[in-house]
Design a protein around this nucleic acid. Sequence first.
DNA 1: TAGTGGTCTAGACCACAAT
DNA 2: TTGTGGTCTAGACCACTAC
Lengths: 253, 253
Amino acid sequence: MAHQGKPAYQQVADDLRQRIIDGALQAGDKVPSEAELMNDYGVSRIVVRMAMEALQNEGLIDKQQGKGTFVRAQRPLRKRLSVDLYGKRPTYSPMKRATEAEGRRSEWEWQSRRTTATKAIAERLAIEPGDEVVKTAYQFFADEQPIMLSTSYEPYALIAGTPVENPEGGAITGVVPRMDAIGQHITHVTEDVNARAPRPYEAEQLEIAPGVPVITVTRTYFVDERPVETCDIVVAADRYTFSYTIPIPSHAD
Amino acid sequence: MAHQGKPAYQQVADDLRQRIIDGALQAGDKVPSEAELMNDYGVSRIVVRMAMEALQNEGLIDKQQGKGTFVRAQRPLRKRLSVDLYGKRPTYSPMKRATEAEGRRSEWEWQSRRTTATKAIAERLAIEPGDEVVKTAYQFFADEQPIMLSTSYEPYALIAGTPVENPEGGAITGVVPRMDAIGQHITHVTEDVNARAPRPYEAEQLEIAPGVPVITVTRTYFVDERPVETCDIVVAADRYTFSYTIPIPSHAD
DNA sequence: TAGTGGTCTAGACCACAAT
DNA sequence: TTGTGGTCTAGACCACTAC
């Protein structure tokens, strides 16, 4: 490895990245094995692995134990979790839309329990810490593969004794219709989008390598200024994209 | 390190993560040095480093060469890049809003040049590959620190000979006002939000460690169904969050 | 000068997949 | 059985920071 001031592992990563971008290595192609790369570049295995790890975290390659390393299919194959602002229906169920639109089955599992609000959750729901909330953990699947984790919180006071006390137990799916059923007509939703490396549990559930980033969304549903549900969403960034369409008001000032 | 089937580096990471979450290690606290951790857990340095790298990529710690490793300030301190749907003004300049709102100066640098559209860009702008476009690379700063990279593309045919041919050279800042000035009244914007590890150039520009994810946004401005500008945005995920507010139409079906 | 994290070598054994 | 990537050891030297 001719040095140019840069660390060797970055030079290896740069070279391989360029070969992928240039198309010398195409989607599905096998990347040379670690042993071959050690030879090709004249570096130790740790250097090769550091380079490959960087490329994996960039979403460019896919390592498979026992088989080898392959160039990933690029962006166009990523699924979109889209939020349609123009639909007449008040449903707000991007995952269902995304999966049904592709003729796939949409499935989820959930586990619900009553608990008390932490300080952070209380703040998001504009209630007091210690107030009762219903906490529900969801796992969404498409074609048997886990694609999204979500944990939602609702003030228990809001839904106690109503038909929707059981989160998704009834026939009504989606937060907006469920809230509609008890007279809470959701007016808007806020989403804070961020990203980070997955926690081990998330990496396992979503079947991604540790280091491959996840997109996190903190979503809160409001009836006017009152929050009625808040949830934390986690999806694998190398497989999914969040899409937004934002209307720009006209210049009639 | 008592083994429980899990790799040692995950156990070390799990233990340190728990100490941070529990508050035993608080924001700003110094994490034990690599040498101390090797001793504490009875593992080699590479194991300690793999654990620390995971925590860094999760945004939990901050490594500083020569000084040590420290627990990061958590989410609430992150800045928001917010998109206000309700403002009367048609400006769409989230970075300015975010920085001005905090009484900070907002600065940017840009470099513009005419070139031809690649296949991907042509598709996003609904023009033909090879058509002329104006490509502009922006760097946004807040308090001298780089916070956002952006590369925008506009069809040259749209702006040729107009006062806004020079991207941000005139007094008009922001895409919506600029387009307004030439009679193009932007009706909506689409954003595709994703995340990945940064490229070396991005890590350097944004002053983040390789492995700390960036949020990428592919944003396109439309006049009715016609795209008039598209851009790629990159921000450090450990410092910034994108916020959306989405109105939910009422159930009057 | 001492302590920190950054890079790197040369090995080793393991788990998994293909043959 | 062979080749792959996953984990791990025991070192080494360097660059940066604080004293």
